[in-house]
Simulated assay, not measured.
Amino acid sequence: MTINWGALLLVAGVSLAVTVIVVALVAFAMVGFSARESGPQSALSPAAGTAVGYACLAVVTLIVLFGLGIVAKDVLAHLFG
């Protein structure tokens, strides 16, 4: 049994990058939603903050669904193919 180190490093790198992107998008969504709170330090209007929050969460949802679709396709191909 041999290990394909190139493929392993590629998967690890993509996993790390996607994790960082998802965490950053959720953090930006939280910042956007926090603009709805009344405070003098808010750089966004409440409407813009809400829009940014929902947009970031929509992108995160698409990323997660894409990953689940890849896994489901492979599992179904293994089971029925």
Results as ranks from 00 to 15, higher is better:
residue 12 A to P: 00
residue 52 V to Q: 13
residue 37 E to W: 02
residue 35 A to E: 04
residue 43 A to P: 00
residue 70 I to N: 03
residue 69 G to T: 11
residue 65 L to E: 14
residue 32 G to L: 10
residue 43 A to M: 00
residue 48 A to Y: 13
residue 30 M to T: 13
residue 75 V to M: 11
residue 47 A to M: 01
residue 68 L to R: 03
residue 44 L to G: 03
residue 16 L to I: 13
residue 27 A to L: 08
residue 55 A to E: 04
residue 7 A to V: 00
residue 19 T to I: 02
residue 9 L to E: 15
residue 31 V to K: 09
residue 25 L to F: 13
residue 48 A to G: 13
residue 74 D to S: 12
residue 44 L to N: 02
residue 3 I to V: 08
residue 43 A to G: 00
residue 74 D to E: 15
residue 37 E to Y: 04
residue 69 G to C: 11
residue 61 T to M: 03
residue 2 T to N: 14
residue 23 V to Q: 06
residue 15 S to C: 07
residue 78 H to Q: 15
residue 16 L to R: 12
residue 10 L to D: 07
residue 17 A to F: 05
residue 43 A to W: 00
residue 24 A to H: 09
residue 25 L to M: 15
residue 81 G to R: 12
residue 67 G to N: 04
residue 25 L to T: 09
residue 57 L to I: 10
residue 4 N to P: 12
residue 1 M to L: 15
residue 21 I to L: 14
residue 74 D to A: 15
residue 58 A to K: 00
residue 30 M to C: 14
residue 2 T to P: 14
residue 33 F to C: 01
residue 56 C to Y: 03
residue 10 L to H: 01
residue 42 S to N: 05
residue 63 I to L: 15
residue 72 A to Y: 15
residue 42 S to K: 11
residue 50 T to L: 07
residue 62 L to N: 00
residue 60 V to H: 04
residue 65 L to H: 07
residue 37 E to C: 08
residue 20 V to M: 12
residue 47 A to E: 03
residue 47 A to V: 01
residue 27 A to S: 09
residue 13 G to T: 09
residue 45 S to P: 05
residue 65 L to C: 07
residue 52 V to T: 11
residue 43 A to F: 00
residue 68 L to Y: 07
residue 16 L to S: 15
residue 66 F to M: 08
residue 1 M to V: 14
residue 32 G to T: 06
residue 29 A to Y: 01
residue 49 G to W: 00
residue 42 S to T: 10
residue 21 I to E: 10
residue 17 A to D: 01
residue 71 V to H: 11
residue 33 F to P: 02
residue 19 T to E: 10
residue 54 Y to F: 06
residue 59 V to Y: 09
residue 64 V to N: 07
residue 15 S to T: 05
residue 17 A to E: 05
residue 7 A to W: 02
residue 31 V to T: 12
residue 80 F to E: 06
residue 40 P to E: 06
residue 64 V to F: 10
residue 36 R to S: 05
residue 16 L to N: 11
residue 64 V to R: 04
residue 36 R to Q: 08
residue 43 A to H: 01
residue 20 V to R: 12
residue 53 G to M: 06
residue 66 F to I: 10
residue 72 A to F: 13
residue 81 G to Q: 14
residue 36 R to I: 03
residue 59 V to I: 14
residue 73 K to E: 12
residue 47 A to S: 02
residue 53 G to P: 02
residue 29 A to E: 06
residue 40 P to Q: 08
residue 28 F to I: 13
residue 8 L to W: 09
residue 12 A to F: 04
residue 9 L to S: 12
residue 8 L to N: 10
residue 24 A to I: 05
residue 4 N to W: 15
residue 31 V to D: 06
residue 31 V to S: 09
residue 53 G to S: 02
residue 45 S to V: 08
residue 40 P to A: 14
residue 55 A to M: 11
residue 36 R to K: 11
residue 2 T to K: 12
residue 24 A to C: 08
residue 66 F to D: 08
residue 39 G to L: 01
residue 58 A to P: 00
residue 9 L to D: 13
residue 55 A to S: 12
residue 45 S to L: 11
residue 46 P to D: 01
residue 23 V to C: 06
residue 80 F to T: 01
residue 30 M to D: 14
